[in-house]
Write a protein that binds this DNA or RNA. Structure first.
Lengths: 341, 341
DNA sequence: GGTCGACGCTAGAACGTTCTAGAAGTAGGC
DNA sequence: GCCTACTTCTAGAACGTTCTAGCGTCGACC
């Protein structure tokens, strides 16, 4: 008989296997594996070696079943959305820093948010983080009654839901300030429609324009989340009379659509028209795009989201102040310059 | 005392709670919830109502702990990679169709593949699907010894690993055929470097050129996965003498970088230069890009990947034929036309 | 009228872990 | 020598589910 104790074959190795090999009780092995107090240094060493030899891996399900706390946070994200990718990256590091794990559930064209949430509910998550959810406020409230829920990158009217989001209005204010400083007076805004944050950004654009005494030149063009919608908006912009010399755009993806149409129409960016995006996505950073844009602080957003979720679990979160707003900052690249003439 | 039986409060409701309410035993409730045979219609109805009233949700961890099979497939994907998003979408539907669930684990800038895989190993997955992994073949082989592993969208030399991938060489052959048919004779290829599939695509390009008797005009420009690398390659292409009238490009992202530089240099696509991408990503479909491209059949790829994983689990997978190659097809849009002159 | 099978249901164990309670053993203080 | 305190360890139960085995009851068959 050969030794089949390796990790490769048949039944998975359990605490009992390790305990037998090390000549101790099962709970003691558990203690060692968890680095919990209650074992001598010599025994720890022996148990560790036995576990190593057997290729032992703790069964996280059994552990969670037994433990009161799962230290697991569910995350719902859109698989299509590049910005969600950035946020997921940040969430992983933020969660790890406070000893939590993440359970991911994707929203895809064939799998809506309800499904994504439902699958996490079975998973013993202690809290849920939803990235830019489209769920109705009532659904969110219902979910919140069941467990802590933190919504990221979307404003929610319902005061019972924790929200962490960028100060979208301030972001557009920054963009307009920058353009005004360069000397622009006719500044358009390409809108995001019903997308999360769009209303706030539109509001910020309007407010900034008025504060600079440029309210008369206000021009909101209907756009959207995607390049195509940006392209359509750019065509509308070209026909405006007088034509704006600058545009703030709902997001970077949409802005690249705008850029493309402007350039194909023979205009130079930024010489003829300046363009400012939003998100500072990897798209904007590409050297041949070099989009001036409003950067969201993903690191801060994700850290706050995880912190709020865990605080809610510990009961240390404030009952008021459910909304945390993170200031954005402007990243000036190559698509903004003084107006022509 | 008010009724605290609702789903919102304290301890989660268990089978025992439902059983007590319905006046039956715990296993019977389990039978009803699983739609397993062994309960009368009347009882089923009563149990279902009790469960509904209590807001009962099965605890998937306890279930998995008890069950021999978890019917759970782990998926490792790159959160940055849009094409992985498409694949994940397909995997969800393919898995659901055969009664499996997915456990997602993301690769991010701060979380490498090892970490991603390790977290799934704890999770009781029965099989692993890895999307375009960068892991060494030896690591893959080691993993395969432990559990069924299916690699998607990357060729693996090791014959012990199941692979489902697009026929990259054939894809480039299609692209070259198309360009030759249009009348092009000087066709360049923008390379993907060490990226998964790049070597195959380069090979397909060379083979097609030779078959058309155009081997003399072979020109491979070093590119990569991203727009920036495509832009650099396009600058090299502009300096080539004689200048190619067409280029096949490693992928769509890279191709958009190529397009951008060509157009900024004052050339018209497709009038002066034709460009063919690879992936048929959402990028290529954008109306203002309208990239002619080689489409990967994501639906087929994902269905085959799930089918292979489950077949491996059932022991019905063939010992040979570890590699399944899916033919791509050409999507002709607006970036290809006959050469000038 | 007894055996058989099917049906509807239940008792008890099992999955792999962690928790609680407590048992040995050692050491120190009086 | 006894009490207390501490360390190291173990027995047994518990988490919520599903599996195995088996118990009644009913009807049918010979």
């Amino acid at each position: 008989m050969t030794d089949v104790s390796g990790p490769s074959r048949g039944r998975r190795t359990t605490l009992a296997d390790v305990a037998a090999r090390a000549g101790v009780s099962v709970p003691l092995v558990s203690i060692v594996m968890r680095d919990a107090p209650g074992a001598s240094a010599a025994t720890r060493e022996r148990v560790r070696r036995a576990a190593e030899e057997l290729g032992y891996r703790p069964d996280i399900r059994a552990r969670l079943l037994r433990r009161a706390r799962s230290r697991l946070i569910g995350v719902v994200f859109g698989v299509q959305h590049p910005f969600h990718g950035d946020l997921v990256s940040g969430l992983y590091t933020a969660a790890e820093a406070v000893g939590y794990e993440l359970a991911l559930s994707a929203v895809t064209p064939g799998r809506d948010e309800r499904r994504a949430v439902a699958s996490l509910l079975q998973d013993r998550c202690e809290a849920l983080i939803l990235l830019g959810p489209q769920l109705a406020a009532s659904d969110l409230a219902e979910l919140t009654a069941r467990m802590p829920v933190v919504v990221v990158a979307r404003a929610v009217r319902n005061r019972a839901v924790d929200v962490v989001r960028t100060d979208d209005a301030a972001g557009l204010h920054l963009a307009v300030d920058h353009l005004v400083e360069l000397g622009h007076t006719r500044i358009a805004h390409v809108d995001g429609g019903r997308a999360p944050g769009a209303a706030e950004r539109r509001r910020g654009y309007r407010k900034a324009l008025h504060e600079h005494g440029l309210g008369a030149g206000e021009l909101v063009l209907s756009g959207g989340l995607t390049e195509d919608e940006g392209a359509a908006a750019a065509r509308a912009l070209l026909e405006a009379d007088p034509r704006p010399t600058a545009a703030t755009v709902f997001n970077d993806r949409c802005a690249t659509g705008v850029l493309d149409v402007l350039r194909r129409a023979g205009l130079s960016v930024p010489r003829d028209v300046s363009v400012v995006g939003f998100d500072d996505s990897s798209l904007a950073r590409l050297s041949h795009v070099a989009l001036t844009t409003v950067a969201q602080d993903t690191e801060r957003l994700t850290a706050l989201a995880v912190a709020r979720a865990t605080a809610r679990l510990d009961g240390t979160a404030p009952a008021s102040e459910r909304e945390q707003v993170v200031p954005p900052h402007l990243v000036v690249r190559g698509t903004t310059a003084p107006p022509p003439g």
